[in-house]
Structures are given as structure tokens and as C-alpha cells.
Write a protein that binds this DNA or RNA. Structure first.
Lengths: 212, 212
DNA sequence: ACAAAAGTGTTGCTGTTACACCCATGG
DNA sequence: CCATGGGTGTAACAGCAACACTTTTGT
């Protein structure tokens, strides 16, 4: 390959959502060689008339049919051999969506702890983005919790979600106290029936506590 | 300009150091139009046989004559009109060096709070990188303090540095207590004479407290 | 002796952790 | 009435903030 100052850039997007208290990622099934049958982060090759963010947004729309206004910038991956055929630089992003609204026959949701065989270096890219996403969730940076939970939920569900992310059990009383006292969540007034005592429903406070 | 999937990428590096308790950045004087006389972040156009990190490292070596092993990945800047002549994507990095060791007639150190007129969007890029650098300093991510202060220093100097970064006064006793009790710094055993009582010298503990 | 900067402890506050029992519903 | 999950308070602890006087040197 001749030396050149022109580069091919692909913008790869980690489309994530929460389902049943677990973080999920939306991956694309690769239909052709190489890596046929493996899974891919959805993405596009960047053209010279769009910004990285525009390209990422296009990918989200193509994958989910929803426009997305919230993108987290991830890292770049520029190893020379990440695609053996051609030198392609990857710029990664993470976006948040709502799993139940999204349908795409070419794609499938995976639990972030049970990623399938992924093509190229996409598993490394996915894991790097997921780690950053977890950090932002834990600190509620940019009110990201509101984006993940736009609707109501029970505190038990939310606690399960945090226990999965932190990978350790949390004390129910302390967990509730912190969120309620800090006005991070507010009661909707509704309840939902479960196997035991009905559970109060909460929502994230749009203008509530967050970092930066 | 014809639509294309090939892109020009420049890798821009914020070369930073501490001097007299203040964060400084090393900028290049632009010698030709456009923006003649303005100042630039040093950088290179990426060729398709190098990674982004290699290109950033080359820039550091060319600017400072020192190899650099420590680079912080910054954001990308891909607005279509950031260079009015051509669409160039900027990938930014931050590196840390020691000001007193570096000489380069085409470049000059500036206090981060007194940046000169900068070409293109380089001021925006510099400020974004400086903000991230400050955050990493405050949390001592990757033992960055050891990289900024590879040699001995007095706690008063260090306190001044933090007061500049945080832009607020700190209590001397609390500041010292925290650093000493946590073993973040250790006494060298030496002292240095000042206008008043001689001051103990400290060094950062290489294996000391840090985040991630 | 005095000026200049370094060095040093204690107290209160705030947020976090640990911990166990009662409540509301469905079957 | 029992099984299931939801809801609640208090006490110890750690980290952080506020605060003033003494020590060591040079002149």
C-alpha cells in the first residue's frame, strides 16, 4: 500500500439500552466474509462532508429508526492491522436508546456480559465504551440516568441495575435513602403490583443531581 | 470539493508542563498566511502508515527533542469548516514534559490562563484538553502528578499549583495532611532554603495513591 | 529582635456503611 | 395464614472543612 495522507475512517456506535436491570448492546450480524457470522458494532465510513457526530447519528437512525440526540464520544482505534485488508481508523461513540421501541431484523441485543464472537477488534472497542458508559452511569454524568430510564421504574429495579453495573450487592435502605434524599428520583404517585407488596414508582428528576 | 471517503487527519498535541506553580503550554508561532503571527498547537498530518499515538509521539519529539511515553487521548474535532480551505479532522492529545529541559526557537511557553491569539479552532482544542488535564491532575489519574513533578518539590509549591488549578485557596494543614497521610508524597530528607524557615522537600510516591 | 515562610492538632460536619424488622398484597 | 417482595431508622465510622499558634531560618 502506497504511503498517503488520506485515511479511511469508520464511525462505530455502541447502541446501548437497559432491559430487565441489565445493560444491553445492539449488534449487527455480519453476512459476508471475512468474519461471516460474527457480530459487528454498527457504523459507517465517514465521508468528507459530514462530521463524526453526524455520521454516528446516521448510524443510530439507520439501526434504530430513532433520531438520537445523545452521543458519548469514545476513543479512537488506529492500529494499522485492525482490518487486515486496509488501514481504517475507527472513531467510536456510545448512544442510549430504549430497547422495547427498537426493532431491526439484522441486529440483535446482547447482554454486555455475554458478548458474542465479534469481528475485527470490535469486542475491544465495545468493552472500552461499555466501561466508560458504566462510569458515567455511576456518576450520573450529563443526567445520563434520565436518558436510560426515561420512564418510571421501581427502586428495586434500579437497585438491581446498579448491582449489575457495580458487580456487588447494595444495601436497600442506603440505596433508597441516597436517591430520595438527594432528589435524584421522585415518586410518581403510582404503584405497580408485584409478587409481594405493591411497589412505588419513581422517575428520575430531570433537573436533579448530576455531574458536569 | 468532491464527495470522498478519504479524509485528512491532523494530530494536534497539547504539550504541557508546570513552571513556578503554573500550568504552561508549548505553542508554535505561525510563520505564513493564513493566521500568520498567530499561535498553533504543534501537530502533523497523519499518514496511513502510522497510528494516531505514533504521530502524536513524533510531534512531541520534534517539538521538545524528548521522547514521550505519556499521552492522554483527547477529543476529535471534525467540523467541516474548522480549516476554511480544506476539510481536516483534528485528533487531539495532551502530553506532559519538563519545561526547563525543553528548548525550541520556533515555540514558546504560555500560561494556560493567558493564551495568545491562536489560529483556526486551536484555542477551543487547547482549552478542552487543558480542562481534561486539570481533572486528571485533581484525581491523580494514572499517577500523572508523578509525571508532572518527577523531581522534588516543597509542599508550598505544590499547594500553589493546586490553588491555581482549582482557582481557590486551600488550607495548608488539610492539604499537607491529606498528601502525607495517604502516602501520596514522601519526604526526601532534604531541605531547601527560602525567605523564611527552610522547607522540607518531598517527592511523589511512584507506587502511591492514584485513580485507575 | 523582627520579618518571612514552614510546620503542626483538634473539632465539627457530612456522607457512607452496617444492620433487622414490619407492611401490603396475592394466592 | 403464608409466601413474596417492598418499605423504613439509627448508630458507628471515615473523609473533609474550619481554624491559630509555634518554629526555623536570614537579616
Amino acid at each position: 500500500m502506497a504511503k498517503s495522507y488520506y485515511n479511511v475512517i469508520e464511525v462505530l456506535v455502541n447502541i446501548c439500552a437497559v432491559d430487565q436491570g441489565k445493560l444491553k448492546i445492539f449488534l449487527k450480524h455480519k453476512q459476508n466474509e471475512p468474519y461471516k457470522g460474527y457480530w459487528l458494532l454498527p457504523g459507517n465510513i465517514l465521508s468528507n462532508d459530514q462530521t463524526l457526530e453526524e455520521s454516528a447519528d446516521n448510524t443510530v437512525v439507520m439501526s434504530t429508526n430513532f433520531p438520537n440526540v445523545f452521543l458519548i464520544e469514545g476513543k479512537n482505534f488506529s492500529n494499522l492491522d485492525r482490518d487486515p485488508l486496509e488501514r481504517i481508523i475507527a472513531c467510536s461513540f456510545t448512544s442510549i436508546t430504549v430497547k422495547s421501541l427498537v426493532h431491526n431484523p439484522e441486529m440483535q441485543w446482547f447482554d454486555i456480559d455475554e458478548l458474542p464472537k465479534m469481528a475485527y477488534d470490535h469486542e475491544i472497542i465495545a468493552k472500552a465504551n461499555i466501561e466508560e458508559l458504566k462510569k458515567q452511569i455511576i456518576s450520573n454524568k450529563n443526567n445520563i440516568l434520565y436518558k436510560i430510564f426515561p420512564n418510571d421504574f421501581t427502586l428495586s429495579e434500579l437497585q438491581q441495575f446498579f448491582e449489575n453495573i457495580l458487580n456487588r450487592p447494595l444495601d436497600r435502605r442506603n440505596f433508597r435513602k441516597k436517591l430520595i434524599d438527594s432528589k435524584t428520583v421522585i415518586e410518581t404517585g403510582d404503584k405497580i403490583n408485584t409478587a409481594g407488596r405493591p411497589s412505588k414508582l419513581y422517575m428520575f428528576n430531570k433537573g436533579g443531581k448530576q455531574n458536569e
